[in-house]
């Protein structure tokens, strides 16, 4: 089975995020980069499917040169190979541009199964998984917490607001991962050594069947005008009182009069 995992490198979520001097991008120097947490779950699930059904796991990532580190992390976990899509021409594109570029790359790699995180926790567009499936005209199942493949079919439990549904489709399919599907493995030392030596293929604009009018900042249909740090100044008022009952009574008063609760 040919399994392709879509992976994104993102700034560490435990770090502060700063705005660059241009006012429309994020400062990227001196920050720690990590694999998007939902993509770690995607890599893990791909490895488990390979262990059960055989096949090859390819990591596909679009980003800066630095994103090859994240591809190597996935290879250290056990993936077979990695492809980095990188070209300055792609800079500043929106989610729709990314969908088109990834789709073009997937047409070259081929696939029986594509797995992606349900969203990346930096830009939170939630668009890549369903978008790529739509453009490839293959079935899409989002927010998967359990899957089972038998006889060229996949059955998935997916999370919905207020419950779960079980869906079934024929391969090839794209599904996205939600927490609870698995616990991603740690990389082993031998895995890291192996990943270091692995050649990562780099694809640029000229390697892909994409049109110049589909990519880059000037073709983004959603353009960032400005970025700001949200005004989040709160004036903390500590609730005092002789006893915890007194404090609770004061807080209940405030909840009633200021916040309109009950």
């Amino acid at each position: 089975m040919r399994i392709v995992v879509l992976v994104k490198q993102i700034p560490d979520t435990e770090s502060q995020t700063e705005i660059d001097l241009d006012g429309i991008s994020i400062r990227t120097d001196d920050i720690r980069w990590v694999m998007n947490p939902y993509d770690e779950i995607a890599v893990e699930e791909a490895l488990r499917i390979k262990e059960q059904h055989g096949g090859k796991v390819t990591i596909l990532s679009m980003g800066s040169q630095k994103a090859s580190e994240t591809i190597r992390t996935a290879i250290a976990m056990g993936a077979d190979e990695g492809i980095l899509i990188h070209d300055p021409l792609f800079d500043g594109g929106d989610a729709l541009c990314t969908v088109k570029i990834l789709t073009a790359a997937l047409k070259q790699t081929g696939y029986d199964l594509i797995i992606a995180g349900q969203r990346s926790v930096d830009f939170d567009n939630c668009q890549i998984g369903p978008g790529v499936a739509e453009l490839l005209q293959i079935p899409f199942i989002g927010m998967v917490v359990k899957q089972e493949i038998t006889d060229g079919k996949i059955k998935c439990d997916r999370l919905i607001d207020g419950g779960e549904v079980v869906l079934e489709a024929d391969l090839p399919i794209l599904f996205t991962t939600q927490r609870g599907l698995n616990e991603p493995r740690y990389t082993s030392l031998t895995g890291v050594m192996k990943a270091k030596k692995k050649q990562i293929e780099v694809k640029s604009f000229s390697d892909l069947d994409v049109d110049e009018t589909m990519v880059g900042a000037k073709n983004a249909k959603v353009a960032i005008n400005s970025l700001n740090l949200p005004a989040d100044k709160r004036n903390l008022k500590i609730i005092d009182g002789q006893t915890i009952e007194d404090q609770a009574a004061s807080l209940v008063n405030i909840m009633h009069s200021d916040m309109g609760v009950f």
């Binding site: 700034p11 979520t13 502060q16 995020t17 705005i19 994020i26 926790v121 930096d122 830009f123 939170d124 983004a220 249909k221 959603v222 353009a223 960032i224 005008n225 400005s226 970025l227 700001n228 740090l229 949200p230």
Partner: peptide, 15 residues
Amino acid sequence: FLFGGKIMARVSLVG
């Protein structure tokens, strides 16, 4: 909001 809620973006739409 981007990055959960760390950054607020103003965006315009084309199309």
